[in-house]
């Protein structure tokens, strides 16, 4: 290796250098909220198993202003997470009809459709 070659170093704030890097970092950050909400759901099951009193106490804790604010933040993060990943999904799926690749909109659309259908099923099951 030539000793006189200059090797640049990547600054620690590289993710602030381009808007796309920042959007990527935000997308990655959303998984923390998603993970935390998944843990909350598991905890909800635990409380449900402990009987009606424990369940009501859990529900009351969720209804405090702080808890509602957190759930709203988690909702925004979940939406950003879903939308960004649905947008990327067509590039991961190599589907072809004849000599043409299936349009990205179809694949992303199928994801949104599944989202709506699954949400509707959950709503029906929960008696909403």
């Amino acid at each position: 290796m030539n000793a006189k070659v200059h090797y640049p170093t990547l600054p620690g704030n590289w993710w602030l250098k381009r808007p796309s890097y920042l959007r990527y970092m935000l997308r990655e950050l959303t998984c923390i909220a998603i993970g935390a909400f998944a843990i909350l759901l598991v905890f909800a099951l635990l409380r449900l198993g402990q009987g009606a009193e424990a369940w009501q106490a859990f529900r009351a804790a969720l209804a405090t202003p702080l808890a509602i604010a957190w759930q709203l933040v988690a909702l925004v993060f979940a939406l950003y997470h879903s939308v960004t990943w649905f947008a990327l999904a067509p590039r991961t799926m190599l589907l072809q009809i004849g000599t043409r690749r299936v349009p990205a909109g179809w694949i992303a659309g199928a994801h949104y459709l599944s989202w709506v259908v699954l949400s509707a099923i959950v709503l029906v099951l929960s008696g909403a």
């Binding site: 796309s20 990527y24 990327l88 590039r91 991961t92 190599l94």
Partner: peptide, 24 residues
């Protein structure tokens, strides 16, 4: 980590990021 900038800057629209996810 699928930042995706490789595909954005590609002058030939190769989409390396997509190819890499397919390989994953």
């Amino acid at each position: 980590t699928f930042i995706g900038e490789c595909s954005e800057v590609c002058p030939k629209h190769v989409d390396p990021a997509g190819a890499i996810q397919q390989m994953k």
